[in-house]
Design a protein around this nucleic acid. Structure first.
Lengths: 255, 255
DNA sequence: ACAAAAGTGTTAGGTTTACACCCATGG
DNA sequence: CCATGGGTGTAAACCTAACACTTTTGT
């Protein structure tokens, strides 16, 4: 895993060295994915944003952490490639998956020109346990990552910005949670991602007025206080169909 | 021009035919651009959205109209490729240029797998005259295009959606206009793109309260009535730097 | 003077925000 | 019965849409 730059290069006429030859080779095409999950902070226990990275085991940036990714394999759409990517890294099927951006700067990789089409994904916290044995995959706090290989720091920053931005107007927070959730849990998701406290009363109204969320007749038992009602998300599930068509979307600017 | 699919294929180990061989070839990488300009409608004379298309002169979809595009040439970033693209088609440097989406479906092109990274651009109407001699480049009304080659119809529809969407929250309308413009002209831009009338009084307030627009001490003379004041856009000009970093942005969903 | 567009004022309605308050449950 | 989070009510502040009205020019 994660040694695809080498692999991609092997397909090309001239893998290395000769500059004149290199200019003739078409850029390699790669797919990478920024995967977000909420996990309890080690200190406060409150949920915070985490993402998995893989350690590079070969030379461009050997030993440094990088986004999970791989070459674009034939007979596989861009989305499918990202999805497979996610499965191999976290063992999960994506709850939410959307294209982020195509990064194509000339010197992203020192050895060879690589164009990366990057996706971003949301997965559920509990299920997001790594396949154990993997020593070269580790979760990091999303706001603490640094020293990444290639331009992956910039990519992570942009994905974070997009997540925060989109969270404010689109119904994506649900994809961090299971089928049933309390409004307090949902609020904690928003507070973790947006990194600011929200008024519980106003949050309740905002979210119950929104379409796509339905109260169930179940309650969460076992708490210390009054058992909160459980809700379900019944809106569209763009899990594997976030394309430019239909009702999909991207993000919003800050102006 | 516009015969780059062939050209790209020529670089690859196995240009055609053999399916087993074809699966080994990496997908070709192309850049295309959706270029928008406002031109007066032939009937009403009011400004409407237009875009330039190029006629295909070789076989996949020969004779049909397609988006301007070409292969990704070495020593040229994605943005630079799109920018060159735009220059060759309209003779203009882009006033606004932003990445739209990477289209990578398996069967976009019948002969060979092609991944297209598509940009969208805004140019000024008056200057957007074609280099005359070009018989294979023509402007079409954006809401009337049909029968395009490949999946370009879908791409145009998405670009249109994105333009309309982004127009509602970002300061991009200015890029259709010259340095000095009246508020009525600016309102006509919004009305043409959003395809609905706007209240002049409220529009004025909305736009004069927004940052990045300054009144000048000049007035537009020569009209039939009271000469309107001329304004200037003084906000950030993302003309060639619309990357995921900085204050750039993409679009907003239809939650 | 009159028509028409430029530009200003005003008001009703909706949305957001802050916070007071009641409800229900475990201890 | 009390502490605590679940859940409801309410009023000020703010934003938006609709439209009446005044101003300024060319004819």
């Amino acid at each position: 895993m994660s040694e695809w730059y080498q692999h991609a290069a092997a397909v090309l006429p001239n893998p290395s060295g000769n500059i004149a030859e290199r200019r003739m080779a078409p850029p390699a095409l790669a797919i990478s994915t920024v995967i977000f999950a909420l996990k309890p902070s080690v200190n406060s226990g409150r949920p915070t944003l985490w993402l998995p990275l893989v350690r590079r085991i070969r030379e461009p940036f050997k030993g440094q952490w990088a986004l999970p990714g791989g070459p674009l394999v034939h007979d596989e759409s861009l989305q499918e490639a990202a999805s497979r990517n996610l499965l191999e890294t976290t063992g999960l099927a994506p709850r939410y998956l959307e294209q982020l951006y195509a990064f194509g700067g000339l010197h992203r990789s020192p050895s060879q020109r690589v164009v990366s089409i990057v996706y971003w994904a949301l997965v559920q916290s509990e299920e997001a346990e790594l396949p154990g044995e993997e020593e070269n995959v580790r979760w990091f706090r999303a706001d603490r990552v640094q020293g990444l290989a290639f331009d992956h720091q910039e990519i992570v920053d942009y994905a974070l910005w997009r997540l925060r931005n989109k969270m404010e107007y689109a119904s994506i927070a649900y994809h961090f949670l299971g089928e049933y959730f309390t409004l307090a849990q949902l609020r904690e998701v928003y507070e973790a991602v947006l990194d600011r406290p929200l008024d519980p009363a106003n949050f309740r109204r905002h979210v119950t007025n929104a379409a796509g969320i339905e109260p169930s007749d179940r309650y969460l038992q076992g708490g210390k206080h009054r058992p909160p009602r459980l809700y379900r998300y019944t809106g569209p599930a763009p899990s594997s169909t976030t394309a430019p068509n239909s009702t999909s979307a991207e993000n919003r600017g800050t102006p």
